[in-house]
């Protein structure tokens, strides 16, 4: 025995690590990945591989040549950013646009703030919203589900349920008629509808949620607050005027509601630290999403809602404190 090691307590550690959590999230994303391959086939494969490879590569290059710091690509967070970015893109998006998206996500969304842990906004969403604004046409042409399994760029496209309803209502059509044009709720639940590559299959995303809850990677607060708020808000609107407002099931199953609530809003770095704060955050996302969907210019508002609430996180954390021991009066 040489000299004894002296260090302050505690002398043991749980063994939890950044990697374990990140790879846990990746595993949780696999069902949705499988669903996207099933629904969109080749296109989803190309988009996902490109986004993941580009995200990891950009992180590697920026750390190596610009920041000159040890590489963090093995921690898995760049893979998650790549996967989430891909899941938020149409599966017929040209490779070069995806690469730009990954560059913005990693370069601006993450690295410019100092890397993992310091970025105020969800990097994948920064990339996605940048693309949405820069390439609005490509970003809103959606391959038809199940019909394009073997095609990529030349996929036949159609509208998403959200845009069908949005456009239809704008043109004065009746909601009851419009609802007939969109896939059944059962099909939507399985992912057989137009949309971004990884957002369509609610069932796959929910499996991921259960996995993350069981492994204690995330807690229930954010996903339930987001989805609960969307359900209640759209439920009330629907009750007030069923002719004009679609109900909660429609809103929960369409667009990025599930993907956003389960995987984007729960990003550790860009969400609040206390259960109470997380609920406020989730409710905010739910409200803003519905406002944009129902009253705003875009058919979908999940990405914007999350980014807006990301901006409030420092404020929420400053004023919403955890429940202190001893506050309870006996």
């Amino acid at each position: 025995m040489s000299t004894l090691i002296i260090s302050p307590s505690p002398h043991v550690h749980s063994g939890d690590s950044v990697k374990k959590n990140m790879y846990g999230v990746i595993i949780a994303l696999l069902p949705a990945l499988a669903a996207s391959l099933w629904v969109f086939g080749l296109g989803a494969l190309v988009v996902t591989v490109t986004a993941v490879a580009a995200s990891v590569l950009f992180e590697y290059l920026i750390e190596k040549y610009l920041l000159k710091v040890p590489s963090t690509i093995s921690d898995g967070s760049a893979v998650i950013t790549g996967l989430l970015l891909a899941f938020n893109l149409p599966s017929n998006l040209p490779v070069w646009i995806i690469i730009i998206g990954a560059l913005v996500a990693i370069g601006i969304g993450k690295m410019s703030f100092g890397g993992l842990g310091n970025n105020p906004f969800n990097p994948a969403l920064v990339g996605r919203v940048f693309l949405l604004i820069s390439f609005p046409v490509q970003m809103t042409s959606w391959p038809k589900p199940m019909a394009n399994v073997g095609t990529y760029l030349d996929a036949t496209t159609g509208a998403t349920p959200l845009s069908i309803i949005k456009e239809g209502l704008k043109n004065g059509e009746k909601l009851t008629d419009l609802l007939k044009e969109i896939p059944s709720f059962a099909d939507m639940f399985l992912g057989k509808m137009g949309g971004s590559a990884g957002e369509v299959a609610a069932i796959a995303l929910l499996i991921g949620l259960v996995y993350m809850l069981v492994r204690k990677i995330i807690t229930w607060h954010i996903p339930f607050a987001v989805l609960g708020t969307i359900a209640v808000f759209t439920g009330l609107l629907n009750l007030s005027n069923p002719e004009e407002y679609a109900g909660p099931v429609f809103h929960l199953l369409t667009g990025g509601a599930m993907l956003g609530a389960i995987f984007m809003a729960t990003d550790y770095v860009t969400s609040p630290m206390t259960p109470k704060g997380q609920i406020i955050f989730g409710v905010g996302i739910g409200v803003i999403t519905v406002l944009i969907r129902v009253f705003g210019a875009y058919p979908e508002g999940m990405s914007f809602a999350i980014l807006i609430m990301n901006a409030f996180v420092p404020l929420i954390d400053r004023y919403v404190k955890p429940k202190r021991f001893g506050e309870k009066v006996k």
Binding site: D16, V18, N21, L116, G117, N118, Y268, T270, S271, Q278
Partner: peptide
């Protein structure tokens, strides 16, 4: 030690 990833596990 690595940078805080704001996982909030210490809080919980």
């Amino acid at each position: 030690a690595q940078p805080c990833i704001r996982c909030s596990k210490c809080v919980s």
